[in-house]
């Protein structure tokens, strides 16, 4: 059989996993950063945390900026992740298609809701 990998790879347009691999790392890092930023503000708040303190964390423009980016990153990260799970364990094409469609609807709905919450703040 002729060599069809490495520099002799037959390019057919897919990303060969590299794009997803990189996207998981970049979006994951952003969410980790967000976690640290939110946690730091919670820990550095003096006194008990009530509604004012908690909502105040997300109310500033820089935090809205970061939170919006994190919602998009989350959407992307989860899509890559659950799609991997469906591709690994679900073999019947019809069932997999249904699960893919469900995942997309579920995720876009959730992301829209999260953005709506942020928008109102």
């Amino acid at each position: 059989m002729s060599v069809n990998y490495g520099s002799k790879r037959t390019v057919v347009g897919a990303g060969y996993g590299f794009r997803d691999w990189l996207a998981q790392r970049v979006t994951g890092s952003l969410m980790a950063l967000f976690t640290v930023v939110v946690l730091a503000q919670v820990i550095l708040t003096s006194g008990p945390i009530g509604y004012e303190q908690w909502a105040g964390i997300f109310a500033s423009q820089p935090m809205k900026f970061l939170t919006f980016a994190v919602i998009v990153a989350l959407l992307w990260h989860v899509w890559v992740g659950v799609r991997d799970i469906w591709m690994d364990y679900i073999k019947p094409v019809g069932v997999r298609l249904v699960l893919h469609v469900f995942s997309i609807v579920w995720l876009t709905g959730c992301a829209g809701w999260a953005v709506q919450v942020l928008w109102r703040l």
């Binding site: 908690w54 909502a55 989860v78 992740g81 799970i85 959730c110 919450v117």
Partner: peptide, 24 residues
């Protein structure tokens, strides 16, 4: 994988908590 799938399935609950805890 299991923790990721769990958070995926419970995502509406997570956003419900986010919504209610910061809206008013």
């Amino acid at each position: 994988r299991i923790s990721g799938l769990l958070m995926f399935l419970l995502m509406p609950f997570i956003i419900w908590m986010f919504d209610n805890s910061i809206s008013s």
